[in-house]
């Protein structure tokens, strides 16, 4: 299914995503407090952290869709060496795509129409979808493993199917940077692995992937790098084997943690116990 993503820019010397000193707060409470975060191109970077650590907010600030709050300082979000905030909205929407958590609609929209929304930044707002737009949408559906859903109504899909459609909608934007907020939330294990496999194939095609994840073991098994947030700050960042260690995990999550090594893949496997008082 990993058809060649023709048309996606392959940038050899791409610097990937570099966010520095990102702060964002509301009502005097800082949600993000000087976050530095990088995601290299051609890799899947996991954004980890407990509930309320600022993962979703960071993704939305990077995507420049977070409503104005009291940002402090001069946060810089650069991608491929370019300042993302300096791009026009439409150009930014051609560079990056965001897959939100639980985006739904009550409207009677077909899956194909939903995916075609991803072409909006690429065409005049007065034009309809061209044959080329429909080709891109079909390809995006194929890549996300949702081709057989094309004629269904979005409202009738299961959680896993809907997630694939949102992924396809983001892919139809042909982004070089893909941001995902808990793309595996509420999915069964097969659907989780499928989603991560799609991200892997995109990364192999040169896309920079940054995905907020809850499941540390899923991140350990599938990510190249991880950034761990805690209370709006970066607690640790780097290779999976360096960050997912008990000394880092235990204080951030407030649990006891042991790390084993998977006998076949050699990747870390984490087990947890409540911290005894």
């Amino acid at each position: 299914m990993t058809t060649d993503e023709q048309g996606t820019a392959h940038l050899g010397a791409d610097a990937g995503l570099e966010a520095s000193r990102v702060s964002w707060g509301v009502d005097g409470r800082l949600i993000l407090d000087g976050v530095d975060c990088t995601a290299p191109p051609g890799a899947v970077t996991g954004l980890l952290g407990p509930n309320g650590s600022g993962k979703s907010t960071l993704l939305r600030v990077i995507a420049a869709v977070q409503p104005a709050g009291s940002g402090t300082g001069e946060p810089g979000v650069r991608f491929g060496g370019e300042d993302l905030a300096a791009l026009s909205r439409r150009r930014r929407a051609r560079v990056l795509a965001l897959v939100e958590q639980d985006a739904t609609t009550d409207l009677p929209v077909s899956v194909l129409d939903a995916v075609l929304l991803g072409r909006i930044p690429h065409r005049s707002l007065l034009a309809g979808d061209s044959a080329a737009d429909r080709d891109v949408a079909q390809q995006a559906l194929a890549t996300a493993g949702a081709l057989e859903l094309a004629g269904r109504a979005v409202a009738t899909l299961s959680g896993g199917e809907r997630q694939r459609v949102h992924m396809a909608r983001a892919l139809a934007q042909r982004p070089r940077l893909l941001l995902l907020d808990e793309p595996t939330n509420h999915l069964d294990i097969a659907a989780q692995l499928h989603a991560m496999r799609v991200l892997r194939s995109l990364a192999d095609d040169g896309v920079t992937v940054l995905a907020a994840l809850h499941d540390l073991n899923l991140a350990a098994a599938t990510c190249d790098h991880v950034v761990l947030l805690s209370g709006g700050r970066v607690a640790a960042a780097g290779a999976v084997a360096d960050v997912l260690v008990p000394e880092v995990i235990e204080p951030v999550y407030g649990v006891r943690c042991e790390v084993l090594t998977h006998p076949r893949t050699g990747r870390p496997v984490l087990t947890f116990e409540p911290r005894t008082a």
């Binding site: 869709v65 150009r91 929407a93 939100e100 985006a103 929304l117 909006i120 707002l125």
Partner: peptide, 23 residues
Amino acid sequence: SLTGSVLDAFTFGDTAAAALGIP
């Protein structure tokens, strides 16, 4: 009547519309 694409972009909410480049 000409705002069709813009209104389409709101299908999945404000954040989704913003992520599609809509002010």
